[in-house]
Amino acid sequence: MTKHVVAPVAAIPPGGRHVAELGGKRIVVFNLDGEFFALADRCPHQGGPLSKGPVMGLVESACPGEYRYDRRGEIIRCPWHAWEFDIRTGRSRFDPRRTKVRAFPASVACGADLQAETFPVSVEDSYVVVEA
């Protein structure tokens, strides 16, 4: 996999998302409270663009009538058929083992370490890097 510099960190604020074309693949990068995660921007169901879906928290229940709701903003729902995916892993909620969207490693690097890249970076800034 190749490392791609996607955007300056400041361009994807917490809760924000950013779509990039990397090595022929459309990828959406999410900022969850300063941590970055990258998913294929293509729902495994019928190819809907996840980047255009709403986010919500994770709702689970131990018993009818009880709602445990946390991890707000960490579940993306496909805009086409509302399937839920965990932004951190790409796994679907209804069948996490078998139905998942491809996740790519994302990280933050400082511009000084990225000088060899063709992407124009400045040494003062940090950048989101995705391996795809």
Binding site: S61, P64, Y67, R77, H81, A82
Partner: peptide, 15 residues
Amino acid sequence: TWKGVRFEIPWVDRP
């Protein structure tokens, strides 16, 4: 349909 709206009935955690 449950695959899309299972969050309405989170106690139903399997198909």
